[in-house]
């Protein structure tokens, strides 16, 4: 831990200390997912309703839709690897107990009252043991399941486009899930609706990150880039 002296406007001495909040894996996975979500959403809107017409070409060498689909699939598989990686990281990485500790926090009603009160600008931020506050943690859990839904529906759609290789291996199990969900058309619809869930999550997530950076004054935006946040030393 490094301590840095700082003088604020009132010339009162404030000591702050550095804390490693996000590991390299955590930060890397976060930004890879940011990129993937952007690419997947953009290409996904095109795949739903192809709004761009390819340049006229007398040769049969246009593959615009196939190209969009390829990028969609590539980043879809990146998301799957991130999902698996993050699940492993959350559950099994020893140096990452702070995330798991958040589970305990959500069972205390006081944490909820104080957290919601803080967002309504009436109470102080609760003292928490875990990495995330309770509202944040539930939002992340919801996003986890939205991702899972997108992955499963995405794979069901995938096996019908690529029948060989991995598509062939997954075909039977995915068709079983397809029937459970009520047919391919609904799978496609669900995939689209879950994307909207992701979009809304991203908007609120980005706002809350900015809000906490501005008022928390702990450099929490910087921490997802550098890994470190700053505490006032008591």
């Amino acid at each position: 831990m490094q301590t840095v002296q700082n003088k604020d406007a009132s010339h009162e001495e404030v000591h702050i200390e550095q804390e490693l909040e996000f590991s390299t894996f955590y930060r890397l996975h976060h930004w890879v997912r940011v990129l993937s979500i952007i690419v997947l959403t953009a290409t996904g809107f095109y795949l739903a309703i192809p709004v761009i017409a390819p340049a006229q070409n007398p040769e049969p060498t246009n593959f615009m839709y196939a190209l969009f689909r390829s990028w969609h699939l590539i980043f879809g598989f990146v998301m799957i690897s991130m999902f698996i990686g993050k699940t492993y990281y959350f559950l099994f990485v020893k140096s990452n107990r702070a995330e798991v500790k958040s589970i305990k926090d959500i069972f205390r009603l006081e944490n909820w009252a104080k957290q919601i009160g803080y967002y309504f600008l009436v109470t102080k931020h609760p003292q928490l043991t875990g990495a995330y506050n309770v509202v944040q943690f539930i939002a992340y859990v919801a996003f986890y399941f939205i991702s899972l839904g997108l992955i499963v529906t995405g794979l069901i759609l995938y096996v019908h486009v690529y029948h060989e290789g991995m598509g062939g291996v997954l075909y039977d199990s995915m068709r079983y899930l397809e029937v459970m969900l009520g047919g391919l058309a609904f799978v496609r619809e669900l995939h689209h609706l879950l994307m909207w869930g992701t979009i809304l999550f991203v908007v609120v997530h980005v706002y809350m990150a900015i809000f906490n950076a501005v008022y928390g004054k702990e450099g929490s935006i910087d921490s997802i880039i550098s890994g470190y946040k700053w505490h006032r030393k008591h």
Binding site: Y118, Y119, L121, V122, T123, K124, H125, L200, V203, V204, Y207, F211, V214, Y215
Partner: peptide, 19 residues
């Protein structure tokens, strides 16, 4: 959501959250 977020941001400017 955007309206809600903006309203919250403006409110927080007027009445900052408790530290």
């Amino acid at each position: 959501t955007a309206i809600g977020v903006t309203a919250h941001a403006v409110l927080a400017l007027v009445k900052p959250p408790k530290e």
